[in-house]
Write a protein that binds this DNA or RNA. Sequence first.
DNA 1: CTAAAATTTCAGAAAAGACAGAAATAACGG
DNA 2: CCGTTATTTCTGTCTTTTCTGAAATTTTAG
Lengths: 174, 174
Amino acid sequence: MRLTPVMHRYIVHWGEMGSRWGINRSVAQIHALLYLAPNPLHADEIAETLGIARSNVSVGIKELLAWDLVQVTHTLGDRRDFFVAQRDPWEVIRVIVEGRKRREIDPTLAFLRTCVTELETDSETPAEVRERIAGQLEFLETLTRWYDSIKSLPRKTLLKMMRLGQKIAKVIGE
Amino acid sequence: MRLTPVMHRYIVHWGEMGSRWGINRSVAQIHALLYLAPNPLHADEIAETLGIARSNVSVGIKELLAWDLVQVTHTLGDRRDFFVAQRDPWEVIRVIVEGRKRREIDPTLAFLRTCVTELETDSETPAEVRERIAGQLEFLETLTRWYDSIKSLPRKTLLKMMRLGQKIAKVIGE
DNA sequence: CTAAAATTTCAGAAAAGACAGAAATAACGG
DNA sequence: CCGTTATTTCTGTCTTTTCTGAAATTTTAG
């Protein structure tokens, strides 16, 4: 696929952003390319456009599929896999947040819970430390409870809530 | 400083989490250690406790200072620097979010704005792509506007809003 | 000003991560 | 089945990041 200068820069920028957030540069670039592309692309085209090895595209796509950020499509008379990305930014962020929560926050919560349980009968660890870990757990729990309560709200409601943010604050803050 | 098994595991876990989110493992470990430590620690003690080179601590601490996640303190009769971490998880997350926004989101916003401007007179790039980039920008702008509107609310108000999340949704959702 | 202590800088080693290309596997049409 | 095409896996190489230890610098007390 031919990239115009702006598309080129967009993809490069996205790759850099990705690597800052712990996402493989190639994976982020593939995602950016598919996000922009007007039509589904097959692996070879992705490899050629981004100038990376075909095998890397395979691995990258697999990861994006696992994240549900990319879907496979097919065309009649062509047995290759074609890929499209989720194009709605809200949906993209939702899927990423949900994925990171499941893969990173939930295990951390579980970990902190076992810590807190163990600490109940652990006289070795100073009380201050115990409180600190408990506080951390409580914080994360509050945050995830909130996330759970809003994550399935319809987009419109969410938008309204976001726009009203400050006004609501004034009302309930007295 | 002597680490109990739970403290040890906590620090290791935090280091792993950090590296998943693009934060240097040692830096995350130093932060975790200071977060738990009942009293300020000096660089040598941190190096010894975590089993890393003194120089590494120096660099790590510098970064944490730049992020405002750690402060320097002193004691009479001791000219070494002692370090303490911000202990309030809410404040920790606020500082991190604010920092990443400033260093990563804001530049991305600026970048997208120049893209959109350029695209106005760019007939080479397909209209679909232009719309996609504009959509991305609008999305990020909505998100940051919301963030700006709530970031300075007092903790209490924020907590109330979070607890009310679903109820508010019902009211304004009609 | 000097010497000791504390800290930082920096160059290179070590480790981790990303990548290419070959080989293996799978899917498909005939 | 067989040959072809598409895809994936795997291994070694290359790049980048992280880390160390020595040297340089800064700080401080006397």
